[in-house]
């Protein structure tokens, strides 16, 4: 870990100003991913701005009947919130499927969105990785790829986004509220928040340098049956091979987003009209154009079957 200076910010504006002022500065909140990566020198901030004091830890109703979740709301608190459990159960379920109790107690809403990939080659600094070191190449292509992306990948990167929460946020049409270093606030639809790797896999989100997430908003509840199915090799404390966040209405219509398959939560709204026709009908469209490796082609079958299980649960 490289040496860094440290300061505590008290307001979002102060934090934004601090990051603009200091080259190589980064925000730190829960720290559960950032410190992990700093220990390996995958992240090497020269200055850390501790945003834990920003009082962005409230969950409140929005005027349009939705929910505004402060950026610093811990995963545990978000999952346990009665409004989330009642109206956005898919989000509770996704959060509870992720990490461990200890990590959820620390990890924040914003930090969860900003998690970086768990691709083993990204984590091994001796190996070329375009995401870690642009232009160095992708070791995962032709390498060990069982965990990695089957769709939306590029010749530069086949990493996946590891978050469970983000998959639920995607199916809920969340919006990410931010404040930029210049003080400008904006709202980014979750669909536009995470990027595909393309030729620039090191650029993972729509955030500008120094832009701070202040909240995530959820539109008013859509009802329906909510489920989050996470499939992994061990029963807990592991990243998804495949996950499905689904909201199914009584008439069989609904929405579904998939985790563990792409560089961002994977949802194809246009395909959702096929949901009443069953998992295969939907999955065929969602995964049209998939380019799995020989090691992870099973994820396509698994995604469809996981969705089938979710739909069966919804019908039951």
């Amino acid at each position: 870990m490289k040496a860094f200076t440290y300061e505590r910010a008290r307001t979002p504006a102060e934090a934004a100003a601090a990051v603009a002022r200091t080259p190589g500065a980064k925000f730190i909140a829960g720290g559960t991913n950032l410190l992990d990566l700093m220990k390996l020198q995958i992240e090497t901030p020269r200055h850390l701005i501790d945003v834990n004091g920003l009082k962005l830890d409230e969950i409140e109703k929005t005027p349009d009947g939705g929910l505004r979740i402060g950026a610093l709301v811990r995963n545990t608190d978000l999952a346990a919130d009665a409004r989330v459990r009642n109206d956005y159960a898919v989000l509770s379920r996704a959060l509870l499927a992720g990490a461990s109790g200890q990590l959820r107690n620390k990890a924040t809403t914003a930090g969860n969105l900003l998690q970086r990939t768990r691709c083993p080659y990204f984590y091994d600094t001796a190996q070329p990785c375009n995401k870690r070191q642009p232009g160095s190449g992708c070791s995962a292509i032709g390498g060990v790829s069982r965990q990695l992306a089957v769709i939306g990948s590029s010749d530069a990167c086949i990493a996946t986004h590891p978050s469970d929460m983000a998959v639920a946020m995607r199916v809920l049409d969340a919006k990410v509220e931010t404040v930029r270093a210049d003080g400008q606030a904006r709202r980014i639809p979750i669909a536009d928040f995470h990027r595909l790797p393309g030729t620039t896999p090191h650029i993972e989100t729509a955030l500008m340098p120094g832009e701070l997430i202040t909240a995530v908003t959820l539109p008013k509840p859509v009802g329906g049956f909510h489920t989050y199915r996470k499939v992994r090799d061990r029963a807990s404390y592991a990243f998804a091979l495949v996950s499905v966040a689904a909201i199914v209405q009584r008439d069989g219509r609904g929405r579904a987003a998939f985790g563990g398959v792409a560089h961002r939560p994977w949802r194809v709204e246009a395909a959702e009209a096929a949901m009443p026709g069953g998992a295969k009908a939907l999955a065929d469209q969602v995964f049209a154009g998939a380019k799995p490796t020989h090691e992870n082609a099973f994820k396509l079958t698994l995604a469809e079957r996981t969705l089938a299980g979710a739909l069966a649960e919804a019908r039951a």
Binding site: R118, V144, Y237
Partner: peptide
């Protein structure tokens, strides 16, 4: 679950941490 996965090009165990090399947890 336990499997030291070899990168046969570069000659090393790729999943060289406790997230990548899965051992049973309580829930298993």
């Amino acid at each position: 679950m336990e499997d030291l996965v070899v990168d046969k090009r570069r000659g090393f165990f790729v999943n060289h941490d406790l997230a990548g090399y899965e051992v049973p947890v309580h829930a298993d």
